[in-house]
Simulated assay, not measured.
Amino acid sequence: MDVLSDVIGVLRTGRPRSAPVLHHAPWALEFAPAAGSAAFHVVLRGTCVLRPTASRQSVDLGPGDVVFVPRGTGHVLADSPGTPVTGPPCEPGAARLPGPRPPAGDGPAALLLCGSYPLDPQRTHPLLAELPDLLRLRAAPARHPEPAATVRLLAGELERPRLGSDAIVPSLLDTLLLYVLRAWYDDAPLRDCGATTGWAAALNDAPLMAGLAAMHRNPAGPWTVERLAREAGLSRAAFARRFAALTGRPPLGYLTWWRMTLAARLLATSALPLSSVAAQVGYTSEFAFAHAFKRWCGMAPGRYRRVHAAGSGCQGGHELTVCEQ
């Protein structure tokens, strides 16, 4: 399991939810802040602008552009920066729309795909925490052909639904998220002008990625700094220094954090006995695991399960749609 896929897989709490929305200018739509839900917008046709609710600066968007809002920050989509919002903010639980329906108006049309990825706000990975509040990926088929191809496939499924579309669209949205994040981190060395710290730098560092991949591939393994250093092809001291400098924590500190994150998900989404959960995250003793888990999150594993299992997002999601202006 590569690091990015593993992080998204563990932190997700359900399927992506989305709806196509067709607007005719003038229009403006506000999206309320949504903790635990990363918003996204794909411009399938036409143009629009996006501005965070707390800012007056707007971002121009055109066909094929993708916007990812990793922390669910409140924002506004509109046909132009000066168009006022007239309706209430859209909430994540808005009623489903049967499809793109044009509201009253005779201005230029914009077809968008709006929605969200449910993410666990209590277990945010530093890889995602370092992302900006608003991540925009311009349509650039020559530089990023995979996201561009995914947007084209999404547009085809939404404009011409056929058998299987209800299953294909969520899968394409999963794919699009990974492509957008991959493109963001691939471009980090160019965008950050040689920045040498943080997860953007870590994901572009081949030796460090070898050590991280080993942890994620086998989190229960009997890892030591020396064994991880061998995976990375570095000396023990060099690996430990490099890991801490780029990620902000020592190798075994990260490993423990990731093991506890995996354990929290297992406790919330499965009925596995504590001994099995402990074994899956590298503890041969249930007592040692319980002690480590309580030190990490402030409550015993059994209590954590009782508190979080009922509200977990382990079940498959359903299509959610957003308000229409």
Rank of each mutant, 00 (worst) to 15 (best):
L127M: 10
A271E: 13
F287S: 15
A35S: 15
A129P: 07
L112C: 06
Q57V: 10
A195C: 12
R15S: 15
D6A: 15
A142M: 09
A263K: 01
P145V: 00
L135Q: 05
H24P: 03
L176Q: 05
A288H: 14
P118L: 07
L252D: 00
V281R: 09
D6C: 05
G164N: 08
G194D: 12
P141D: 10
E324V: 02
A200T: 14
Y304M: 05
T321Q: 08
L234H: 05
F31N: 02
H23D: 12
R227Q: 06
G198N: 03
M215L: 13
S5H: 10
V7F: 05
L97M: 04
A288I: 06
L272P: 04
M260R: 06
L267W: 02
T47Y: 09
S285R: 02
S275V: 13
L172C: 03
V151F: 03
P89G: 06
R56K: 06
E157W: 12
D6S: 15
R305A: 09
R160K: 05
Y117K: 08
L11T: 14
A38M: 10
L203P: 08
R303I: 14
A220G: 13
A292W: 02
E319Y: 09
L134H: 10
A240I: 00
L134K: 01
Q57K: 08
A245W: 13
L246R: 15
P108M: 00
T261Q: 13
P70K: 00
S5V: 02
A35H: 10
L11P: 10
A244Q: 15
A245I: 02
L22E: 01
G64Y: 00
L178E: 12
A309K: 12
P81I: 01
E286K: 03
P70N: 03
H291K: 10
R15N: 13
S270C: 06
A94D: 13
L163P: 08
A310P: 07
P145G: 06
W27D: 12
P84Q: 06
P147T: 00
P89Y: 09
V277D: 04
P33S: 08
M260Q: 11
L203S: 03
Y117G: 00
V69W: 10
